[in-house]
Nucleic acid binder design. Structure first.
Length: 458
DNA sequence: TCGCCTACCACCTTTGAACCGT
DNA sequence: AACGGTTCAAAGGTGGTAGGCG
């Protein structure tokens, strides 16, 4: 994933299909990106290799979906796209973009938070859940290392259309650049698409999808043509991370957009789809069995089995899983997710008069992140709470690191008249109350100190 | 010397205002 | 007056590339 000083969008963008929400309840969807391991990488011999220890983690920031807060019906209506999320390597970034280090591996995480009465989150007893899709792991770079990735992005990103050429042109450019490998042509991409579609269609048609009714969030971190990036390079560790021929219970799902539906943000309009003969179809792959180390913090102990969490029953979409008349996020008809919890009431601070509640509860301390390793006990330990009929009491525990960082200045300022900042810095210190999503005047200060929020037991 | 980063560039899409016709 | 379609310019998103820097 390219990162720049000015900020660069993720491509492919992060998209999720959400179901099981209560249609009338308001939710806030947000993303953070945490280190996937503690290594620095380099691209050598056409593959990624560990090149040392990771740089200290950057200040963690949240990207709040601009539609937040919105009703469950709104989120479930169509894919939720985080296409405007931007990544930067500028440690002093004033725009609220998510700060990353180049040549490091990262894991995006989706958080779904039930908005409180003030359309905010972080206040007393805020319920939330976190989803991690391992296939969304990426390595950040300031310039492309893998030519196949470059070509795949050029072929699929409309903004890069200017770099597309004819097949003859591709070959010419390839020769001019002295590349040993062929440039991927449009036809080749199409062929892969067709192949991919056939593969998926076969799975769908062969009854691979039994009646699962728990899944609720699916990532669509692929080109909407159905070509996952991981297709491209067998030597790419990211590609190899989650091979396509996985456990047969790992499901692929295909659904069709209704004609009258629309994306929340039409980030993938026609240009994204034009290479597909079945352009209206979106293929969503469920997450593999995976217990993210990112969730291994104390409050993540109830994390459900991601495999089950992300299975998806197409009939459920039609039936409207959220139709269940309940407002309780944790009962059987509400959202299933990696974890539900009730956030402990935070101590309240004031930052320039703006109430801000850092979304601390499920941020893993980057320094403690360990490599992704499926955990054999996760299936039991992380069963869906909804299935278990359990509503987590506040399980958030204060991180020891957090205590050590008390006293740092707040990082979240209010600037009258400033535009709405969808990005939020959760490295800030707790403030007097919950974050108000509708407050249009958040701004990030320059100079980010702590990467871990301090909070007390009040 | 090497690897990584930055600034700039040309090319392209997206967006929204202005205009026009019905 | 309201609505919908078209046009156009500005804004913004791309990867390539040369040069800087450690």
């Amino acid at each position: 994933m390219i990162i720049t000083k000015a900020g660069r969008r993720m491509f492919p963008s992060y998209k999720v299909k959400v179901s099981g929400m209560h249609p009338k309840t308001k939710y806030i969807l947000l993303i953070d990106i945490v280190p996937a391991d503690d290594h620095r990488y380099k691209f050598c011999d056409n593959k990624w290799m560990v090149a040392g220890k990771a740089e200290p983690a950057m200040p963690g920031r949240l990207y709040v979906h601009p539609d937040s807060p919105a009703t469950g019906a709104h989120w479930m209506r169509q894919l939720v796209s985080f296409q405007k999320l931007k990544l930067t390597n500028n440690h002093l970034d004033p725009f609220g973009h998510i700060i990353l280090n180049s040549m490091h591996k990262y894991q995006p995480r989706l958080h779904i938070v039930k908005a409180d009465e003030n359309n905010a989150f972080g206040s007393k007893n805020t319920a939330y859940c976190t989803h991690v899709f391992p296939e969304t792991t990426f390595i950040s770079v300031t310039s492309y290392q893998n030519h196949k990735i470059t070509q795949l992005k050029i072929e699929n990103n409309p903004f890069a259309k200017g770099f597309r050429g004819s097949e003859e042109g591709d070959l010419r450019i390839s020769r001019l650049q002295g590349k040993e490998y062929p440039v991927i042509s449009k036809n080749l991409v199409r062929q892969r698409l067709i192949s991919s579609h056939s593969h998926l269609a076969g799975k769908l048609g062969s009854g691979v999808f039994p009646g699962h009714h728990h899944p609720q969030v699916l990532s669509s971190y692929q080109y909407e043509t159905g070509v996952p990036l991981s297709n491209s390079d067998p030597q790419d560790p990211i590609s190899n991370h989650f091979p396509q021929s996985r456990d047969p219970s790992i499901l692929y799902h295909c659904f069709k957009h209704r004609d009258n539906s629309r994306h929340l943000e039409l980030g993938c309009k026609r240009p994204y789809l034009e290479t597909s003969s079945a352009s209206e179809e979106h293929y969503l792959r469920s997450a593999p069995p995976y217990e993210s180390p990112l969730l291994s913090h104390p409050y993540g102990t109830e994390a459900m089995d991601s495999r089950e969490a992300c299975m998806y029953d197409s009939m459920e979409t039609e039936a409207g899983p959220g139709a269940a008349d309940t407002d309780d996020l944790t009962n059987s008809s509400s959202i299933n997710c990696n974890m539900w919890a009730t956030m402990q009431p935070y101590p309240r601070y004031s930052v320039d008069g703006v109430p801000y509640q850092p979304f601390t509860a499920h941020f893993t301390n980057p320094a403690t992140v360990t490599p992704v390793v499926p955990h054999p006990s996760s299936a039991t330990a992380s069963r869906p709470q909804a299935e278990l009929g359990v509503y987590n009491p506040p399980t958030v525990q204060r991180a020891p690191e957090a205590r050590e960082r008390a006293g740092h200045p707040p990082l979240f300022h209010k600037k009258p008249g400033s535009p709405l900042r969808a990005h939020r810095d959760f490295s800030a210190y707790p403030t007097q109350g919950a974050i108000s999503i509708r407050d249009p005047s958040y701004q990030y200060p320059v100079g980010l100190g702590s990467t871990w929020t301090h909070w007390t037991d009040s």
